[in-house]
Design a protein around this nucleic acid. Sequence first.
DNA 1: GTCTATAAGGTGATAGAC
DNA 2: GTCTATCACCTTATAGAC
Lengths: 203, 203
Amino acid sequence: MTDKKDKNTEENIITAAERVFIDKGMDGARMQHIADEAGINKALLHYYYRSKQKLFNIVFTTAFKAFAPDLIKVFQREGDFFSKLRNFVKTYLDVLERNPHIPGFILHEIRHKPDQLIQLVGGLNLDIDVVIRQIEEEIQAGRIKPIDPKQLMIHIVSLCIFPIVAKPMLTAVLFKTDSDACEKALNERKDLIADFIINSIKL
Amino acid sequence: MTDKKDKNTEENIITAAERVFIDKGMDGARMQHIADEAGINKALLHYYYRSKQKLFNIVFTTAFKAFAPDLIKVFQREGDFFSKLRNFVKTYLDVLERNPHIPGFILHEIRHKPDQLIQLVGGLNLDIDVVIRQIEEEIQAGRIKPIDPKQLMIHIVSLCIFPIVAKPMLTAVLFKTDSDACEKALNERKDLIADFIINSIKL
DNA sequence: GTCTATAAGGTGATAGAC
DNA sequence: GTCTATCACCTTATAGAC
């Protein structure tokens, strides 16, 4: 229904499947709906991708890669730790801003599927160790307060991801349904989050 | 009226419905499954609650009340702000620990249902204004650094809720599938979160 | 109140014409 | 490759016996 400027059907299906699966989830998604979105017949979905499950797996894997922060890219560059941290928050929030529904989708679909998760995580190279090592170095060098590196990482991703997942709730509860105000506040966090973290750990 | 046996069908259904809906979500839940959990026949569900949707609404409302932090209870007491903050984190994390699947359930089901959300939020008295006012007072009294009160509240709930929603992911990515280690780390956060926040905002 | 049986409509998947 | 038609099954909900 969206882009009649056909590239090929195969890609159209994936694009449509991403929209529907990420919006409705595996259980809520309907093959008919995906076919409509792709502007094709339902039977073609099975011709190209055999089953709903196989189609979902492709979408899920793609979404997960977009969701997993690219830690190496930021933390293996030159520069001081605080700069890297600011850079990471900014970069990651930009990614999530372009894919605002992915975090909720991933977090929902991942429940009770540790096998699929483990397989995916093994496939990707997330290199959290690079970050952990750098945090330890900062502590030993006396540049930040002592803190469990993993707990600090949990702090960081929590502050980045949660507001995006909880945006509808924040809009309703904290901003009295003023979605523009909420939108604006979440945007400001691109700088605020790093400030908040650095204030807490700096010596 | 007098039969207050532990086998009250009406309550059994709700308990079973909570288990199934919170675990599987509205789309993934099956009336047959709920009936099995309650140890009764599927038709009885409709006898007592008419439709799947009505049953879901009851479960959702109950879950939302458990999810919404009881701000008044903590922040209207006597004491300094930091104590209240520590108290809130501890209390809220205890609530979530007893209902670990509720945050993910609520966050998933709330997507694209702002109407239901608004109605619920209006019904509850969350009294975020009490907290906002106290934060502003702390700033004006020069006891904490200047900060947007709403942003601080987003920080706080993010740090509390996200790790619980993302626990499977954290277990896999950060703790290399060692779920005991993850469990232990999340428990330590009951004190760590408040420390982290206070470190950041204290003067 | 609780059950069995079944209606009524949806859903993933396939067969076969073109 | 793409379509129409259809199958086989599943799911919510109701009817009616007891």
